[in-house]
Amino acid sequence: MKRQGRAAIFFLLPNLLGFAIFTLGPVLVAAGMSLYRYQLATGTPSFVGLDNFADLLWFDSVDGDWQARDPYFWQYLANTLFLMLNIPLSMTCALLLAVLLNREMRGRIVFRTLFFIPHLCSGIAIYMVWTMLLTYEPNVGIINAFLWKLYHVFGITGPDAVALLPGWLTDARWAKPALIIVFVWASAGGFSMILYLAGLQNIPPELYEAADIDGANGWMKLRYITIPQLAPTTFFILVTSVIGGLQGGFEAAYIMTGGGPGGSTTTISYYIYTQAYQQLEVGYAATISMVLFALIFTATLINWRYGGKRLEAA
């Protein structure tokens, strides 16, 4: 026993040391920093207790109206949640692709590779390319060029057609849908699809054989065998995507929109970036990051509470 204890120290030490310096230490420091007002360039930290949290989350009553002390935070939180609408869409596409690709067929590897490509390039390259594709002017942006052609097919021309072209990245109403389209494009064929492919391999073929004997059609087999059998995989992908989505959106906002127009694509993580590394208000940024941590912690708890049951049931 004692010899193993000594060996264990040797095996654990490098990792434990790094863990203490780069994970455990920073978490504790971040928690502490959230209690300080700290402007990195000019000031020394001054203790303010829970004031940062109050400034971030509290509502004041002004003439009988409730006004948020930091209305931006609530707007950006709503943005983050709205952009997470890409998750169900991406998952549906991933499932569809996996079902289609789950058979011996020619070109399977080519398809799989092509659908996986967005996962290989840096998000930066993807967002740069899509910024150009979503350009408003239809002689450059191929999305609007396509819509322009489509309008002509339906007989809409001239000023009417111009008015109908969405200003994808310049119009506050269109910026979020534009980002959702990009997110779905970038994530549909990646990890989720491969996880679904693995899940499909684990479904016993007898289920489908029995369904064939009962005369089930393709849709019924998908609805009553494939989807329920994939429930654990779906749940796993959903939870990881939600956790990722809550901290997401920074790169897209940084490259494509700068968080605009009118803050309509600023997410929590982009807000943290501007506060911490542009304004250098590291105390307030730490407070926002702790609130984000709390949100993710809640999502994980819900996962533990209900995920276990779901997995057993499926």
Binding site: F19, F22, P26, V27, M33, Q247, A276, M290
Partner: peptide, 24 residues
């Protein structure tokens, strides 16, 4: 206990760790 500690830190968002690391 140590292993549980490791597990617990897996859900800490990168944003939380990055700010103190940046200051450091």
């Amino acid at each position: 206990v140590i292993f549980l500690g490791y597990l617990a830190t897996m859900m800490i968002p990168a944003d939380v760790l990055m700010i103190p690391q940046f200051v450091l």
